[in-house]
Design a protein around this nucleic acid. Structure first.
Lengths: 145, 145
DNA sequence: GATGAGATTTAGAATTATTCTAACTATTGA
DNA sequence: TCAATAGTTAGAATAATTCTAAATCTCATC
């Protein structure tokens, strides 16, 4: 990340937090950085370990708080893969998630052009669609797992 | 349920369990009956309370075991609503779930004619699509919540 | 800069949903 | 009938998350 990119990114997170009445803190910045840095949909615990590398005193409770704040202000999405721990994702584009049954990986699938259209019975009012797909990722499919 | 329907239903559960190498037991029957009786997507705990009415000695562990067996043999589907407890559903038709943000209710939405078609990037092999929709159910929408 | 209100962080306790364990019981096939 | 196997049970253990209360930080105002 160049220093200019870094600055605009900081501006954005600061602004987003502010509009939700939340403060910009080093911990929130760090947690967000972790998510931006490696986009593999880490769990709260994984975020905690990665954040600890840069900020050894950060606590698990703070990671939960920060993730919560980032979700609330619209910078981060929660991803629920079945029963496992919640995962987090800084991709706010219209997308869904592919879960590989072999390696457990989670991949973003773009939905820009193909939002599913589901006719709902009379009276239902939908605000959010959430699609998840299971199967084999390209690597695991190639290995014939 | 008439006695004839009851008989065919018993035959079906027995057969389904058998083909998965599982035994037909009164507890599994009871748990399945609970799900068929009120199709409101109960949690394991709710199933436990309802089953206890008819079978006071049934235990929570058994309810989990039975639900697991029913899922394994293809009579029941698990429904994950966000972070909450897993819910269970005896509807094996192609369908998805609508979660009402106001009352918390879960409704089946039929997908017979409109399976979402998502173009996956090269290499991905999907085996299962899982769509969930959030919003307001007809009741809550009408009450303007 | 000092001050105080309110937000945030922290460690650890508490909670919730679920799985595990080991003893007991029931069923099935030889 | 008997042994092998499957299922049930209560309670302990675990995993993920939320709660609590004290300490710390931040920001607007003096």
């Amino acid at each position: 990340m160049t220093s200019v990119e870094n600055k605009t990114q900081k501006g954005r997170i600061n602004e987003r937090l502010a509009t939700s009445g939340l403060r910009f803190t080093p911990q929130r910045q760090e947690v967000y950085d972790v998510l931006l840095h490696k986009r593999d949909h880490p769990t709260a615990e994984e975020v905690f370990f990665r954040a600890k590398q840069q900020m050894p005193d950060i606590s698990m409770a703070t990671v939960y708080n920060c993730l919560d704040a980032l979700v609330k202000c619209g910078l981060v999405k929660q991803v629920n893969v079945d029963r496992g721990a919640t995962r987090f994702c800084p991709n706010m584009h219209e997308h869904c998630h592919f879960h590989c049954d072999a390696c457990g990986g989670v991949y973003d699938i773009d939905l820009d052009r193909t939002k599913p259209q589901i006719p709902l019975p009379r009276g239902f009012r939908a605000t959010q669609f959430d699609l998840s797909i299971r199967g084999l990722c390209p690597d695991c499919a190639a290995k014939g797992r």
